[in-house]
Design a protein around this nucleic acid. Structure first.
Lengths: 354, 354
DNA sequence: TGGACGTTCTGAAGCGCTTCAGTCACACTC
DNA sequence: GAGTGTGACTGAAGCGCTTCAGAACGTCCA
């Protein structure tokens, strides 16, 4: 199988009878040569089957690779199942895509983000990190490579751009609204405090030592309003099924007269599960139990009943991260962290306790 | 801002006092040098802040980049919302990830897959194409670059590995089961026949000229059993909302006594919408209308009622595509296309007509 | 008519790494 | 002690492109 060697810039230059630099210019700086010559070069290239400068060689020479890396806290599949993440990614893609950049997904291992070796090999000019544990080795790996980085929902790292949301305030908002409605007995449903796959009641130790800023802030926001002794349940992932199980545990742990009249959920996905759990137990939302979510993913509006939730601007978060990434790519400085506002969206899953 | 120049292989070699080749070997072929020297090199590298060979330069020299490209038929956001795609990607990731490869997502434009320019710039050694139109320019762009390719759910392309599913047979299976139950009046819900955003009744012209193999096969499978004159509705995307609208149209187009007693949906997502539409009209599933899906995404089992559907092995599809990609990477030949089996999963959304 | 200026194209020096054919020193064999 | 290995390391030739400082050749104005 002696397939003919792939043509290169040199091949084309040779055939046309110009220098390699000129062919390169034909692709990258059309204003540097006459239109006629350029045309001739392009024709020859086409007839030779040359499909443009090799991206890798180009990247080596220019020192950038037209790709933004995205480090996931979880495996690809879990990521794809996460509606909030999808929206963020979409926002990111919408800013980044116009510039002919590709998105390199760097999947996380089960525990705490991507492996450092994977990060070391990824070809990207800038990477954005999304909801990794604060101490993820991948974060260090990026810095070791000297790549610019933007983090979403994560604590300050020197020399790093950041976009975040007021999770603490949002959680307080949710809890206060329930309190104002007259609720006094609560249950809290949260996603992972530690990347160890644990499902069960939240213990103070697990809460104080969590490396996940978002989880910590939301949980603390709730507890700040409704009291630290409120029973809380930790789900290993933000999934409907785990939320359902957790909510069931919360609701059936105590006699009916002490049962929570309101469930605060750290994500909509968890809240959907909670909705289901309430039905499973033959109870009604919101008459018997109010349920409140966090994120305001599109499905929240179509849930049964439509879910009251804390809205965070997910798409904007992604878009903003994209803009920051692009700016860093241009050699810009990280600048001040951007903090986006949250708001309460009242729908039909909350009401005064009966 | 005169930040110190990043150390390179040369820097390390200079400091240790060995040749560059040796440092390279320390990283790539530990058996080529003494353990002691290797150790010394690694130490020096660490103290210099050298984080391993630059991936781009390495790719140029070795001529491969440890990344597999994945061409999407749609924008990133639509892709992330697609449960079936997510599962396929997950399967793919699970085989590919162990080899320290990254996944480069090449997002599609609205119409028919990624732009050829984007493809030309993407850094990947192999690309997998998923449910693009048969005539997508991106496909040609990959071939022009001479990259190996594996296609999922797409017709044969010379020199291309392929994994596919028996969509026609699966659709026949679904239709036959309904027929056997006694149904004689049907409605069919399909996703896009053409990438033009059209929603409405399926016309014969649109059907025969569709560039989407999957759509064509499923639809033809249904019609093969239940007759070509069955009313069918085309949704621009495989979304719950569009399915709901389409099903409503199908169910209310005719007087009640001629109303379809069964709805055949080309995807589960569409079927979920149909379930909702039936309820919207005050009818019951399956007593008044049976609904059958296609794919068997996880949510099918938890739908209300649980959805009867055609199961295709999504994860395996992705895994297989990953294995093929890896094999092509090793210079293997494409080999025979793999055809995976489908099966009918009977749940509670189908029953004999009342 | 000569110099300043533009336009168009070229030569050559990299970008940071891999790899292959050696070289060198040393041990081992008969 | 000449021949044969063998393990450890190196020199240099690329990989395919970009880019920058010119060269070459007009053109235009004073």
């Amino acid at each position: 199988m002696d397939r003919p060697r792939k043509p290169t810039l040199d091949t084309v230059a040779g055939v046309v009878g110009v220098s390699r630099a000129t062919v390169s210019n034909a692709y990258n700086r059309p204003d540097q040569l006459s239109a006629a010559l350029r045309e001739r070069i392009m024709q020859t290239a086409a007839s030779l089957g040359y499909s443009g400068p090799d991206p890798v060689a180009r990247s080596l020479a220019t020192r950038h690779s037209a790709a933004v890396g995205f480090m996931l806290g979880q495996g690809l599949s879990a990521s794809f199942a996460d509606a909030a993440l999808s929206i963020v990614l979409d926002g990111l893609a919408s800013t980044v895509d116009g510039h002919d950049h590709c998105l390199v997904l760097i999947p996380g291992r089960d525990k705490g983000g991507p492996r450092p070796e994977t990060v070391a090999r990824a070809q990207a000019d800038v990477v954005v990190a999304y909801s990794l544990p604060d101490d993820a080795p991948a974060l260090a790996a990026v810095r070791a490579r000297g790549l610019p980085m933007v983090v979403i929902d994560q604590p300050v790292l020197p020399d790093t751009a950041r976009v975040e949301v007021d999770d603490f305030g949002g959680a307080r908002l949710a809890a206060s609204s329930l309190w104002a409605l007259g609720h006094r007995r609560f249950g809290v449903l949260t996603f992972a405090l530690h990347p160890d796959g644990h499902n069960g009641p939240v213990t103070p130790e697990r809460l104080t030592s969590t490396p996940f800023r978002v989880t910590r802030d939301r949980l603390n926001g709730y507890l700040d309003v409704i009291g630290a002794t409120t029973p809380a349940w930790e789900c290993a992932r933000s999934s409907r099924e785990l939320g359902r199980a957790g909510a069931r545990a919360l609701l059936s742990a105590v006699p009916a007269e002490q049962r929570p009249t309101a469930l605060l959920c750290a994500s909509d996905e968890l809240a959907f599960g909670a909705l289901q759990a309430v039905r499973d137990l033959g109870l009604r939302v919101p008459a018997d139990v109010s349920v409140i979510g966090f994120d305001d993913v599109p499905a929240a509006e179509h849930a049964d009943p439509p879910l009251t939730t804390v809205r965070q601007p997910l798409a904007e978060k992604g878009r903003h991260a994209g803009e920051l990434a692009l700016r860093l790519l241009d050699g810009g400085r990280p600048g001040e962290p951007t903090r986006l506002a949250v708001s309460l969206v009242s729908r039909d899953s909350t009401a005064p306790p009966e």
